[in-house]
Design a binder for these strands. Sequence first.
RNA 1: GGUCGGGUGGCCGAGAGGCGAGGCAAGGGACUGCAAAUCCCUCUACACGGGUUCAAAUCCCGUCCCGACCUCCA
Length: 448
Amino acid sequence: MKLYDTQSRGLKEVNVEKEEVRMYCCGPTVYRDAHVGNLRTFLLSDLIARIVRLNGSQPRLIQNITDVGHMSEDFINDDKMLSQAKLEKVDPFEIARKYEQRFHTDLAALNVQPATAYPRASESIEMMLSLISRLIDAGFAYVGSDSSVYFSAEKFKSYGAISGNKLDALKPGHRYEYTEDGAKRFHADWALWKAAGDRTEMVWDSPWGKGFPGWHIECSAMSMKLLDGHVDIHVGGIDLRFPHHENERAQSNALINKEAVDLWVHGEHLLFEGKKMSKSSGNVVLLSDVIARGIDPLALRLCFLENKYRSQMDLTWNAIEAANETLKRWRTKMGHWSTDDSISIDPEIEQAFNADVDTPRVVMRLREIEKDDSHNKAAVFRYADQVLALDLNRPIEERVLTPEMKTLLEDRALARNEKRWADSDALRVELENLGLSIKDTPEGQIWS
RNA sequence: GGUCGGGUGGCCGAGAGGCGAGGCAAGGGACUGCAAAUCCCUCUACACGGGUUCAAAUCCCGUCCCGACCUCCA
């Protein structure tokens, strides 16, 4: 099984001979609903975990819940949790729990299997404090004049290996003016622990005074602790490559003096109708929007699967609806092909999964099999569905008919027997208005 | 300015040296009382300029264009 590793910029073999493959996926900051772009990344870790399992190994997946400390480095008022709490006029932890719950609901709707654990940042403070202390002791971190603790980027020799951003190229002020307060010794240093200052909510005691953790430290702490000091596969969105993962790598590696992560996998961003999804473009799509249109959430999953995870994909309503049709067609055909639940391995599909999660090729292969004359189509589809997880075996739901619908259907059958076509057509319109779609076959009318 | 990735038909998108993926849309046909569904057919592309090669969408050089990241982001 091979995956593209951002750090070495090439395909890298994943050892699936081991009993267990340790995975870490950067989770959500729970201050708002995850949009479908966020979900695409979480889907990626699900696909990798499923492929690991297909190869006979067990994934141990840790996904953090950021419920504290995710803020821009230099502006204390910008904490995402606190500003949203202010906006909704509730306790910040209430916000966190609410959106955390919705995150799990969305994942379940997309058939994303739950991670082994979802540690919360706010409940992992001890872990982070101990890690920060060790980094200070090892000489990689220092307490600034503002009582915050900073990581010293220059002390970590291979800084920049993931993103290609070298320290001397990271001069401050490229994007917007920095307000250097002088507490950091070097412009590229970042906070491991932020002193509370005026802040009173979401603060904890520490050896350096009241404060709260920096964003990057939580992933180092959780992955080191919950994955026993080594990550086989680290998954996240492409935007996290820098600075988040670069900093996480520096922290973790500094601590153990070797590579803490074998493979860095980054999912590309999703565009919606040509533009990056953002509040200002007004094109943020939530999974609930998809469901509200009467589309199966798994159609979105199929839509994602039809594109390489490493390409910026442009999602459109048209594409989602097309995927929804494909899904319905496959489920209908599955019902006709066979009713058992046998599974038959297709070498081409197996190979595609193992070749850097090439789900577009798998989908293509399924379309091919759909049309050919093989006898075990359903068994091959079921094999692929172990990873695709599109519930292809799910029977098309039987429509529950109201008495009114039943009467109209009986009337129409009668009208058709008597070749009263005008009546038949009028009844069809009426039934369609009730939400049934009618098809006439040589065996009579059918509805769905 | 630095870094990473792209440019393929009306649209979306695979392919990474050798017989024209596939999907969507459109048009035509079969079937049907008509629809719908289904099936068949049609439309045939690789940003530009050089180079390497028997052979280039694919490799190399140059140019143009697009997106992402550069201390908020999946």
